[in-house]
Design a binder for these strands. Sequence first.
DNA 1: CAATTAATGTTATATTATAACATAACATAT
DNA 2: ATATGTTATGTTATAATATAACATTAATTG
Lengths: 165, 165
Amino acid sequence: MSTNRVLMPFKEHGHSHKKCLISAMTMAEKTCCTRGVKLTKLRRRVLELVWSSHEPVKAYDILDKLRDEHSGSAPPTVYRALDFLRAEGMVHKIESLNAYVGCGEPEHSHIGQFLICRDCGAVAEMDDADVRELLAEKAGSLGFHIDRELIEIKGLCAACSTEHR
Amino acid sequence: MSTNRVLMPFKEHGHSHKKCLISAMTMAEKTCCTRGVKLTKLRRRVLELVWSSHEPVKAYDILDKLRDEHSGSAPPTVYRALDFLRAEGMVHKIESLNAYVGCGEPEHSHIGQFLICRDCGAVAEMDDADVRELLAEKAGSLGFHIDRELIEIKGLCAACSTEHR
DNA sequence: CAATTAATGTTATATTATAACATAACATAT
DNA sequence: ATATGTTATGTTATAATATAACATTAATTG
């Protein structure tokens, strides 16, 4: 039995992204509503910008876009929105890139395992129980108790592998 | 059979660190010599500063110390030395902390899995083949080929768990 | 609608890292 | 030994990432 839950798979290159975006935004609205937290106009916009692709987005790139739309935007504008979105599990930070990606499944809290393609830059998110268990076991054998794990894997996605052949 | 190689275990709190430091520096000298690369005075000093404890060290903290010793030190001084040491596997960067730790086994190139205690701040380094294999398998099932993996686990080390009881 | 809380605006600054070019130290060939 | 090339370091400037602190506005609630 596989526990390889894929929260957000790699998409074929050039897929129509509109559906991803709509689905993510709908899910976010719904999740916020359920939780009684507010997805304000600003937060929604930042989430849209994060979801503009499957590649991690930089905070200052988001800021540039916000500034085009509203001159009063500043770093805190972005970081606060990102903090909110991260706290609600709608966005994850990729620490090794200082960049942010949308989460495909914000409604259930989790800690993802990220696959990052070195070629197209896209990120996929797994949430694999076997991996978590194995790490817990290995860490446990050293007397270490895990709170949170950060897993960011760099490599080549299937689509990019194919193109390279 | 366990594959849980521990490159740098957690030490009991308050252990005499001098031996760790001497051993690390000796190993570094030896490894550089074998490889025909130069552990210059500056690089050696930066490595010592990284090894001043088992906690990740910040680049600008290193810089402050270097400046005490030589006023001509600047950010590039530190980052270049760190780049060299990282390239030679003597230092690892903890991406989630923007900080640097010494590697217990620079002589064989590897990608470690880091356990970071939220209480004492110490870092242990594992290099576990089972974990690597499982991740390769899981990623592989998505058609993803792994180049490098980043694993940084936050939690509570054995010594800190004991103290909390 | 007054009081409170939450969200955003605004200014300033902290932290982390690199670019670009100059000089010095070291190695090697003549 | 000295010219030459290479590696390492010095130096100045700036880029990129993130937070602090306080003011204002908007939303919520008593």
